[in-house]
Design a protein around this nucleic acid. Structure first.
Lengths: 257, 257
DNA sequence: CGGCGATTTGATAATGGTCAAGTGCCGTGG
DNA sequence: CCACGGCACTTGACCATTATCAAATCGCCG
């Protein structure tokens, strides 16, 4: 009668620190009443430790549950027939990657960890019941998927229209803003555990060119990025270089200038 | 006591042919019960005729209503600080562009007509009331925004990773599929009232290069596109050239091979 | 007929890709 | 403690795709 053993640690009832991450994330976007927060924190969640560079779900899967990233970084990506990879989104702690599976039958991108991660899994059914009981919570989750859409649009603008240096600066600005909005890493340097190849695949450029553009930004005195640690020396300059305006993130409170 | 005159025709109660467009569109994505269809068709809608190349809503607006495109083509786009435009999405009849404004305070892209259009406007309030009465309808609308997100991801892959010829073929495949799925234009040639400059701005390439790539596709015997009329001579070949797989459109019924 | 926008063509240039090789960092195992 | 191996990063040389600029043609509408 013992629970089945799983790879990684598992707990079916919510340690509230896990579901609380969801509340914090949603709170950056939509207002939540106290009762709503509590209801979300009572969601049954199963927590697992996942290794770095492991696929959580794949394109075409039809999962019966969705993920909450509790700790670590992940990304969603797709690959062309010619084998070229595009990272569609970087996921930070609190993100709900693949929430779309709640309403769309099949997943259209692959979800992969970039670092070792703590991931929470919540059954669609549990969320659906919660939505029935408290429809306003559904609105908050819906808002989250809408913000995700807004970020995709900005990425499309970025990849389609901005030249390499500006494109890179823009992505760095976004990551800094999102990390700060979560209150994860307020002090410099900011932990940014992704490779230059990851950045390249997110921006539709070659790794070599990312390297050179990083050097350009460093040379201009805007940033340093070494061993996964980013220091922004000139936030205004970086914003300008990246043509960055945070409104597309739809954050309720602005953190940095 | 006469109703105020508007540019274009206006009617505050729904002619069901207008709201029926919404039902048809949603039905391509999510199943709807008969009662749900009827409830949607009773939504109060105000219909206006809009000229070609006119902005319906702009980035930063906070509208109290959202649009249904009833007839004609439109697009959403954003502009970089350097003045370069990216079209984020083409909107066909039945589309609900800017539905995001229901939950996000400000719009993050500009909605512009590409042809003369018939547009329906529905107050957010009316939709919110409908969602309260029939939560399953909210799911259908949510699904629509999720499919929109899926399309953005595919566009990102397209713009970021596919070379020009393939990128163009992919966009054409998508438009053909979406038009066919709506049952708008089953016969060849397909009306495609957009300029090569529009295509260029959607794909992040120059107009000149779009022109050359169109010639390449024509030279390969795949299509002809002249005066807004597209004929696909070799659908399988076009799909292959565009590395096209329609699953990201999340259509419930597949129309074309 | 005139004019304007859309399309087409040619010539030139640049951004950024590819290829190849070398350096540095870090964890593993002897 | 040190040698090894692998991966990330860096650099240089070369080149391809695609942008830009300029001008001509076409088609449509008034």
């Amino acid at each position: 009668m013992l629970p089945p053993t799983n790879r990684g640690s598992a707990a079916v009832t919510a340690p509230s620190h896990a579901t609380h991450r969801i509340v914090s994330k949603l709170a950056t976007i939509a207002p939540l009443a106290e009762g709503e927060r509590e209801a979300i924190e009572r969601l049954p969640i199963q927590i697992k430790a996942i290794a770095s560079r492991a696929d959580l779900t794949r394109e075409g899967d039809r999962p019966s549950r969705f993920c909450v990233l509790l700790d670590g970084w992940a990304c969603s990506h797709k690959v062309t027939g010619a084998g070229r990879r595009q990272i569609m989104a970087f996921h930070l702690p609190g993100d709900l990657p693949g929430l779309q599976s709640l309403h769309l039958r099949t997943l259209d991108s692959t979800l992969t960890t970039l670092t070792p991660c703590q991931v929470g899994f919540i059954e669609h059914e549990a969320l659906r019941e919660l939505f029935q009981a408290q429809p306003r919570i559904a609105e908050a989750f819906w808002s989250d998927t809408l913000v995700e859409g807004s970020i995709f649009r900005e990425w499309l603008l970025n990849v389609g229209q901005r030249e390499a240096r500006s494109r890179l600066a823009h992505v760095l600005c976004e990551l800094v803003m999102r990390i700060r909005a979560l209150g994860l890493n307020d002090a410099d340097p900011i932990q940014m555990p992704i490779t230059q190849t990851d950045l390249a695949e997110a921006m539709g450029m070659s790794t070599v060119h990312v390297n050179r553009m990083l050097q350009a930004l460093r040379g201009a005195g805007l940033i340093t990025l070494e061993r996964g640690a980013l220091t922004v020396h000139d936030w205004a300059g970086l914003k300008q270089a990246g043509d960055f305006d945070a409104s597309y993130l739809h954050l309720r409170r602005r953190m940095v200038g």
